[in-house]
Design a protein around this nucleic acid. Sequence first.
DNA 1: AGGCGTGATTCCAAATTCTC
DNA 2: GAGAATTTGGAATCACGCCT
Length: 443
Amino acid sequence: FQSTVGENRWLQGHLIQLLTSYCDLNTAARWAQRCNLPKEMLPCRVADELQKLHIQERVEEATKADNYEESKKKDYYQLPIPRANIHFLQTWEETLQCWEKVLQPAQVVGIDMEWRPSFGMVGKPRVSLLQIALKDEVFLLDLPRLLQQAEVDGEKEKLPQFIQMLYSDASITKLGYGMSGDLSNLAATWSALKDTDKKAQGVVDLLAVDKRVDVLSLEQSDEGRGVKQPEKGLSLLVQYVLGKPLDKTEQLSNWEKRPLREEQILYAASDAYCLLEIYEKLCKDPESFGLSTDLTESLVGKESIKPKAKKELNKQETLSPSGQQCQGSRMEALRRPAPISPKEFSVVCDNMLQGLGRYLRCLGVDVRMLENGDDHRKAAEIARQEGRVILTSGLPYQTLQSQVAEGRCFSVNSSEKAKEQALQVLKHFNVQVSLSDIFSRCQ
DNA sequence: AGGCGTGATTCCAAATTCTC
DNA sequence: GAGAATTTGGAATCACGCCT
């Protein structure tokens, strides 16, 4: 039809006529719409039908948009507090009220900041919005506006003072995600806040916590559906802990422009508020998220304590057989086969693990070491030919593990010392060393 | 884009071991 | 015991991911 009728108006009109008499009005209307025929050229019944069609389309569009909005609400994290409890603060008086509520002993607040994403610009961006979330209220401080007002009123110091007080008060728990970046930008916004980060007390950075959690979440998604994980960063953490990810659409929007759009306000509020919810949930049952200690361990302040505590945790994790180190081993660990003697255990050792190799040899294990120039493939080859278990670490594990049978490749923590590594291996493969095994391979 | 933090990799020189 | 060879661990570098 299309090609026959072409652009010829008369033929198009005739086609509509024919369709009206031989088919139904709806079909005729559809064709009329397709040919873009003016109303005047249509029989009135067709014109009416066309009108209906238009209305129907509008309704469909609206429904579609509605569905979109709804699905958005359904699929993303939603603020559990009413919109009226999100306060956009632009005046001094409002800010005072905010302080009174925030600066309470034992208070827990979620803090986040937004600034205008800037490319090729030198220097640090100025913070445009400071979000402070309480249990049932969120305050969005319009920093540029407040700053400007303070200058007029000659009360420049008050706002930085408040922020300083908030951060230096150890009894107020400040929750953040990647706080150091926020703080350095804040310092660039106000030179008075230059050393806020140094004086900070009672800060919990959920980014540090995130690292211990996301290993487990990866494992979970592996077993569940093999789909890729589009969420990352805070959104991933929110998804893991609270079930739904964060809608990050507004992340890179212009935070300097006023007024802020409703979506921006909701985003900013959620970003800060979700920290509270995550913290609460993680504190409630740290165990179910693989956290052995309570979150206050990640307190920023004493530089020396934080990395130490983290290392300890990492050790514990890598030593546990359920870690991600050796996927094939999970079943084995569950079955717990009868202990074997070192004589029955033979391995091929990565050349990076010579220390471990020697250690195992001393204990009577049959160890083959890779030559210095050998490729990792050789390990797989030897392992197959001689029925050895591969011991390796780091990246090579990823490739080797897939080349041998399940559980026949073990990843050693290369940051451990040889002795620890050996213990790890023996424990994993349930090798029991007796006194007579020691040096049994020496001639 | 730029800054920052982290984990992996590479590099280097001191320490240790080997060889004669 | 001197010099060569190897081992080793930490520093420097790299790569990546996250933040706005």
